[in-house]
Computed example of a mutant assay.
Amino acid sequence: MKIVVSGGGTGGHIYPALALIREIQKESNINAEFLYIGTKNGLESTLVPRERIPFKAIHITGFKRKLSIDNIKTVVRFFTGVRDSKRMLKEFKPDIVIGTGGYVCGPVVYAAAKLKIPTIVHEQNSVPGLTNKFLSRYVNKIAICFDEAKEHFPDDKVVFTGNPRASEVIGKDGIQGRLSAGLSTTLPVVLIFGGSRGARPINDAVIKSLSELGEKPYQVLYITGDVHYQEVKDEVELVGNPKNVVIKPFIHNMPEVLAGVDLVVSRAGATTLAEITSLGIPSILIPSPYVTNNHQEKNARSLSDHGAADLLLEKDLNSITLLQYIDRILLNKETLKEMKTKAKKLGVPDSAGRVFELMKMLVNNK
């Protein structure tokens, strides 16, 4: 089976695509060949070749939501991207094309649809982006991760699959994950992070909480993000770093570390939520208020409304509320157990397999 994958802009679009590719590569009875189409300047241009996956680039930019002359240029680039994508697709001759979001998959998936190649878009969030809304008119199927996304797409095209990234965190060694991060194997662990680049409001609240955290009967793994790490370390030196608080700029083995975590404090990106629900980890979600259509808050509510997470809006975040929320869950065994059960019910650990089955169905029926 020859498969073209396209998606980019943020890790939230790229990591699910890579997770799906790795899952398909495990299938011993499938001789799969891949081509990933992205942009030269996007994160995918670094992450995809690192996985030894063939990569080609087109030039495309996203639409600005305000009236702008740049949008005219984007339209021109879109049709140029469609032309270039058609050329790549004719050369590669894929059996199916899947887009995982971001503006780059717009011309790629559109070109595939026009060439009558089976197509899927994968929507990770509860509120779809502009690209997937546009593509929904042309693709064969739309894979979703949140029931809330259904209303934005044609009913006959929607299939609930979950996020392929969820499949990658299953079966990892939590003890080894703890040891790799310099954590005790006996004390409960709360993981605090603000995404790959970090989040200043979360960092500020944690720094102001350090003295109190040092007196807690649990340990903290605090990921600042590379951008904020040195600034945080400078501030921590002034107030002191408690022994039960481990501070790192970034962790590359997140699946292993998550397997050893009891509670997560984070933003509400779709990939993070897929990971923690598949593992049944309770969470305190602090959605970014700066994302399109406030989709992170809607993502978070899909967990908090089911009792799997506590929602803490950024405007209400400070050192006091952060500690109150953590203590309410981590220091109450019944609350922790109940939230774990509810989080697990929302998880879709076989999500990569579900997407692959959908792909095979379309290929076999073409």
Rank of each mutant, 00 (worst) to 15 (best):
E275S: 07
A343G: 02
G194F: 07
T185S: 03
K248P: 01
S351H: 12
G177T: 01
L67M: 14
G280A: 12
Q324V: 09
G195I: 06
S6W: 02
P242L: 11
N203E: 08
K345W: 11
V121M: 08
P164N: 04
I175M: 09
F55H: 08
K172D: 04
F34A: 02
F92V: 14
E334Q: 14
I326K: 02
D226H: 11
E297T: 11
L279K: 05
N163A: 10
C145W: 09
E148W: 08
F356N: 10
G99A: 06
I247Q: 06
L312W: 07
E33F: 10
P349Y: 15
K248I: 12
L213W: 12
T321W: 09
A270G: 00
T272Y: 06
S302T: 10
I30G: 03
I30R: 14
I251R: 03
G11E: 01
L279S: 08
G9N: 04
I53Q: 07
K66P: 02
G174L: 05
I144T: 13
T335R: 09
S6A: 12
G129S: 06
E314N: 13
D95Q: 10
D204V: 14
Q324N: 12
S6C: 05
L303C: 01
H152E: 14
A300V: 05
F153K: 02
T100Q: 03
E123G: 03
N253G: 02
E275G: 04
F78H: 08
A17E: 09
V265Y: 07
G62S: 07
A309Y: 10
L191D: 03
P107Y: 15
L47C: 05
T277L: 07
T335I: 12
Y229V: 11
V121S: 03
F79V: 03
P201W: 10
S184Q: 02
A143K: 01
F79H: 08
N29L: 10
H59Y: 14
L135E: 05
P164S: 03
T335S: 09
G171I: 13
I30Q: 13
T61D: 15
V189R: 00
A32E: 09
V264C: 07
I60E: 08
D234S: 14
M361K: 14
V363I: 15
S85L: 02
V4K: 00
V246T: 15
G269T: 09
V82G: 08
G225Y: 03
A268H: 00
F55I: 13
F153N: 11
F79K: 01
P16W: 15
L358M: 15
Q176T: 15
R197Y: 11
N293G: 05
A111D: 12
V261I: 11
G99Y: 04
R267T: 05
K172A: 08
P128K: 11
F356E: 15
N293Q: 07
V75S: 08
V246K: 15
V169D: 14
A259N: 09
Y103E: 04
Q219H: 10
Y229A: 06
R77V: 00
K340E: 13
V121C: 02
D204N: 13
S304L: 10
G8H: 03
F34M: 02
L336M: 13
V220F: 13
I251H: 06
V227M: 08
A17W: 10
Y138F: 14
K157M: 09
E314L: 05
M88G: 10
S167P: 02
D204P: 03
